[in-house]
């Protein structure tokens, strides 16, 4: 099927079989390897992308289903100030170990802070409940997200 959608702010037109997942389209066909392939069952969240701004598991979206919609991966947020703050906090707070979950984790955190700039710890935990990390035990990830929220607030005039 011929599909047209917006990927990281740019219009993309491509061919995708109906049984191709958005995950495979992004990773294999379009080369966006920041989108990780984990469980392929919607359990691990490594393949998280934003669909019209909302986090979804790209392994559970069929490529043709994004027709006319906007898909955002980490690659589209390189220069985004909120993502930059999250990235900095994750690095400085020691929230990254092997790194495999981090793209998904950052996108879930980004979607949270976009909607809710001063989340409680409980709200942060809910936001990342669909992102499994087998290294950190989550504590430092939660701290980094809270920290990023604070940094962003403090930077505002």
């Amino acid at each position: 099927m011929r599909i047209t959608f917006e990927l990281n702010g740019k219009r993309v037109e491509c061919e995708a079989r109906p049984n191709k997942t958005l995950l495979d389209l992004l990773r294999a066909d379009l080369g966006l390897t920041s989108v990780k392939k984990g469980c392929e069952q919607g359990e691990c969240g490594a393949c998280t992308v934003l669909l019209d701004g909302a986090p979804v598991n790209s392994c559970l979206v069929l490529a043709p289903q994004v027709e006319g919609r906007a898909v955002t991966t980490l690659d589209g947020l390189v220069d985004d100030p909120l993502m930059a703050a999250l990235r900095k906090a994750f690095m400085e707070d020691g929230a990254i170990q092997c790194g495999f979950c981090i793209p998904g984790m950052l996108l879930s955190a980004y979607a949270l802070l976009r909607e809710n700039p001063r989340p409680t710890e409980e709200e942060v935990k809910t936001a990342i409940e669909g992102n499994i990390c087998r290294c950190t035990g989550y504590i430092k990830i939660i701290e980094a997200i809270m920290d990023a929220a604070e940094r962003i607030q403090n930077e505002r005039p």
Binding site: G42, P55, V61, S108, A111, E129, G130
Partner: peptide
């Protein structure tokens, strides 16, 4: 139900 990602779909 599920996670944020699951609830969005």
């Amino acid at each position: 139900i599920g996670s944020v990602q699951i609830r969005n779909r």
